[in-house]
């Protein structure tokens, strides 16, 4: 078992004026682990995700990533070009709304190929080949490679966004409510796909969601947030089946049993 954490978060704090976004969050994520972050709206889970992914600058703390070249480095101290390079190569970010993560005016193939071209791919045939391969992996028919995402269903758009993110073989994927806004049957297929991709590529992932069923199926570990603080953390099934904190107990008991 490797002892170097892929991502070490230490004391990450973000305030919006007097309001606390997230406070003093620390954890280690190891290669191949999937961690869920749950909590109600406004609990600070998206703020935390955006602080880790470099979209927001925290007021305090460190986000240390085990980079492929230089080993562990605090991404908050990196220069912007370095951080942006990281977010195109080792990191990926899947937005809740596919529209935020796709170029709607560019074909599916172009969307998938963009990250390859961004890291220097200059052979059209190879780029297109990779794009088609990835469309297949996310179960989008090859025939749609030249269609724009505007002609895709919501589930297909989300799968395209995932393909676009994973094509450069990232090691850490941030996901913000990846199944939100999709109908239930589409969610199931997406969940299964994410699970297989995570397993087959040995990905680590951090998934923010308010859907406990999603974390139950996808996440190895779970953090429960309330009012910007982590109130409970542990193995997903420990936290869900044997919740310790009052808020977690309330959250778990609030789920409708189908």
């Amino acid at each position: 078992m490797t002892d170097t954490a892929l991502l070490s978060v230490r004391g990450v704090t973000k305030r919006y004026g007097a309001h606390i976004g997230c406070a003093d969050v620390s954890f280690d994520l190891y290669p191949g682990e999937v961690m869920g972050i749950v909590g109600e709206s406004g609990s600070g889970k998206s703020t935390l995700l955006n602080c880790m992914a470099g979209h927001l600058e925290p007021d305090a703390g460190a986000v240390v990533f085990d980079t492929a070249v230089d080993g562990p480095r605090d991404t908050l101290l990196m220069s912007e070009p370095e951080r942006r390079m990281l977010s195109r190569t080792d990191w990926a970010f899947v937005h809740q709304h596919a529209r935020d993560g796709l170029r709607m005016g560019v074909s599916a193939g172009g969307n998938v190929g963009e990250r390859l071209m961004a890291v220097g791919a200059r052979h059209y045939g190879d780029i297109r080949g990779s794009a088609i391969d990835w469309l297949g992996r996310v179960e989008i028919n090859e025939a749609r490679v030249d269609d724009r995402p505007t002609t895709f269903s919501g589930g297909m758009q989300q799968r395209l966004q995932i393909a676009r993110n994973l094509v450069t073989g990232p090691r850490l994927v941030f996901m913000d409510e990846p199944t939100g806004g999709l109908d239930v049957s589409v969610q199931a297929r997406l969940l299964d796909m994410i699970r297989s991709l995570v397993r087959d590529m040995g990905l680590s992932a951090i998934i923010v969601t308010h859907d406990l069923a999603v974390v139950r199926l996808l996440a190895d570990r779970l953090m429960v947030m309330k009012s910007g603080h982590v109130v409970e953390a542990g193995l997903t099934d420990q936290v869900l089946d044997d919740p310790k904190h009052a808020y977690t107990q309330l959250l778990v008991s609030s789920i409708l049993q189908v």
Partner: peptide, 11 residues
């Protein structure tokens, strides 16, 4: 960051 320019040519 000029990958986008090639996206236009790819299209």
């Amino acid at each position: 960051e000029y990958g986008l320019m090639h996206v236009k040519l790819y299209e």
